[in-house]
Simulated scan of single mutants.
Amino acid sequence: MPNVHLTEPMQKYVQAQIESGAYANLSEVVRAGVRMLMEKDGARQFYALKADLEMAATLAENGDFAEFDAQAFEPDAFDR
C-alpha cells in the first residue's frame, strides 16, 4: 500500500511543504494528514455521543425513562 497518487495541485502543495522544511518527505506529509483524519474522526464520535447523551437527558427530564433495577440486572452482585 505504499503508492500514493496525488493530483497536480496536491503534488505542488506537498513539494512546497517539503521545500519549506515543514516536512522532510512525502511520507511525513501523508502521516500528518492521516493523523488529522484520525483526530477528526475521534471528534466526530465524541460529538455523536454528546448528542445522544443530550437527547437521553432531555427524554429523562420529560419523564420518558424506565426505573433501573440493579438487582434484576446483576443479581449475583447482591448475594453476599
Rank of each mutant, 00 (worst) to 15 (best):
Phe68Met: 05
Gly42Val: 02
Ala60Trp: 07
Leu6Lys: 05
Leu37Tyr: 09
Met36Pro: 00
Lys12Ala: 10
Val34Leu: 15
Ala51Asp: 15
Asp76Glu: 06
Tyr47Leu: 11
Arg35Phe: 14
Arg44Trp: 08
Arg80Trp: 03
Leu6Val: 13
Arg35Lys: 14
Val34His: 09
Ala60Asn: 12
Met36Thr: 07
Ser27Gly: 00
Thr7Met: 08
Ala77Asn: 03
Asp41Leu: 07
Ala24Ile: 01
Phe68Arg: 05
Asn62Val: 04
Glu67Thr: 08
Phe68His: 06
Asp64Trp: 10
Ala22Met: 02
Thr58Cys: 06
Asn62Cys: 10
Met38Phe: 09
Asp52Ile: 08
Asp69Cys: 05
Asp64Pro: 00
Ala66Met: 11
Ala22Ser: 02
Val30Leu: 13
Arg80Leu: 04
Leu37Trp: 08
Pro2Lys: 14
Gln45Trp: 03
Ile18Gln: 00
Gln45Met: 09
Leu53Ala: 06
Asp76Leu: 03
Leu59Pro: 11
Phe65Leu: 14
Asp69Leu: 02
His5Ser: 15
Leu49Cys: 06
Leu49Thr: 09
Leu6Met: 15
Tyr47His: 10
Glu8Ser: 07
Asn25Glu: 00
Val34Ala: 11
Lys40Glu: 11
Asp52Leu: 11
Arg31Phe: 06
Gly33Trp: 06
Phe65Asn: 13
Lys12His: 10
Arg80Phe: 08
Asp76Gln: 03
Lys12Leu: 10
Asp64Leu: 15
Glu19Cys: 03
Glu28Gly: 12
Val14Arg: 07
His5Asp: 12
Ala24Leu: 09
His5Pro: 02
Phe68Pro: 01
Ala16His: 05
Leu49Met: 07
Glu19Trp: 00
Thr58Ala: 15
Asn3Met: 05
Asp52Glu: 14
